[in-house]
Computed example of a mutant assay.
Amino acid sequence: MEKNAANLLKKYLSGQCTPEEKAIVEDWYLQLPFQKNAPTTEQIEASHEEVLGRLNPRPKTRSIGYLKHIAIAASILLCVGLGLVLFNKKIEPVPAVAINKLENVLPGRNKATLTLADGSVIDLDQALTGDLSKQNGIVIRKTEDGQLEYVIQDKPDAISGTNTITTPRGGRYQVSLPDGTKVWLNAASSLTYPYPFAKNERSVMLQGEAYFEVAKDKQRPFKVTANQQMVEVLGTHFNINAYNDEPLQKTTLLEGAVKVAVGGNEVKLKPGEQAKFDPANTQLLVDKNIDPDQYVAWKNEVFAFNNEDLKSIMRQISRWYDIDVVYKGKITTEKYFGEIPRSANLLEVFKILELNRVHVQISGKTMTITGN
């Protein structure tokens, strides 16, 4: 039931519900049991079960504007996704001027550049579908669905150079490397790799964040250098978040096995585990108590927050919407839970965040968040 509820709320948030489904969600929300004081664990669980039990078709018509729909659906999604009810929160509307500017800030999309070995740069967003270049028997091609792939036509004699694919803020891209490895690049990231790979290893360099599905090759381990850490695998699925502005560098394993090395330290991960490296004190730890799906949600077009503070959330949002964020005053340390579609425009995102009193001002591409 909980999974069905979450799916319905996601449809509601993206504007894809039927009139009957909208009525279900709105009726559900209006009956949420709010109270003045923070709930106990027992009260949260009881409220959770009561809310889920109300997801029965009872069509009603309510004249609720689209922006209010978003705020309502978001509050329910936050509640259902992790069993948390928001209590005693006064919703303060975003000023009209800010609303107009926020509406115009659209989410990111497929956008990247490819830098070839000779230094020439191809704008992949503007490039036509088909062959882009041929290098040492390898054809670089843009597919109809906007991805980059390498096709080996003639057996290359040796490594003849490197390519770098780079996404800007507000961009993303998927590339299939010469060995068949698939890589999804998040916003503000870059991947540098040789063509073809060497005979004894496959080595790439990452800045930012990427999800890898590595093609199996027992003779050639796949190595990713990301800032100070080295991740080595034979064939597996994993995510690396190594942005320079993040306090921790995180490698999350979904399938297979990986080895993460930093300096003289080394750890091995099993599926569902995460290596965390703190550059400030060069500490490398393994966290076995994570939800790996949260760390690859971006690849599936979702922001997923699990006990994250506002500044952590804003780092993700600033990269995806290509905005700068500054802070004034005392910023809330409250934690956020739930999911927001990455297809939403910036106004929709902040109609959700304002439920926890996020005050926003916009000037050009700079967003100022003012604390209480």
Rank of each mutant, 00 (worst) to 15 (best):
A304L: 03
S312V: 08
D293V: 06
T332Y: 00
L346D: 08
P341G: 12
D291I: 12
N300K: 14
R342G: 03
L310H: 13
F305S: 05
G329S: 03
Q294P: 05
D291T: 15
K335C: 01
E308I: 05
K330N: 14
I331R: 04
Q316D: 13
P292Q: 05
Y336I: 05
N289Y: 07
G338I: 00
K299A: 05
N300H: 14
Y321A: 06
N289M: 11
E308L: 11
N289V: 10
T332A: 04
N300I: 04
I340V: 14
A297Q: 09
I290W: 08
E339D: 13
I331A: 01
K299W: 02
L310Q: 12
D291A: 11
E334M: 06
W298D: 09
F337P: 05
D324M: 02
N345C: 09
L310W: 08
G329I: 02
F305M: 14
F305G: 02
L346E: 11
S312A: 13
G329R: 02
S318E: 08
N307L: 02
N289Q: 15
F305W: 08
V302K: 11
N306D: 15
W320P: 14
S318R: 01
S312R: 07
Q294G: 02
E339N: 13
I323A: 09
L346V: 08
K330E: 15
K311G: 01
G338L: 01
T332K: 02
Y336T: 10
Y327N: 03
Q294K: 15
V302C: 07
K328G: 04
V325H: 04
Q294T: 15
T332P: 06
I290A: 11
K335G: 08
T333P: 02
E301T: 14
F305I: 07
K335P: 06
W298K: 11
V302T: 13
F303P: 09
N307D: 13
G338R: 03
E334D: 14
I323G: 11
A344H: 14
R315F: 03
E301L: 05
L310C: 08
W298A: 04
K311V: 03
N300L: 04
L310T: 12
R319V: 03
E339A: 07
I340R: 04
T333F: 03
R342N: 05
D309G: 13
L310G: 09
D324H: 13
W298N: 09
T332H: 02
Y327C: 03
R319M: 00
K330Y: 08
F337I: 06
S318C: 02
D322T: 06
S343Q: 14
P341A: 13
Q316Y: 04
I290K: 12
M314T: 12
N306K: 15
E301I: 05
F303S: 04
L310R: 08
P292G: 07
D309L: 00
S343Y: 00
D322V: 06
P292Y: 05
K288E: 12
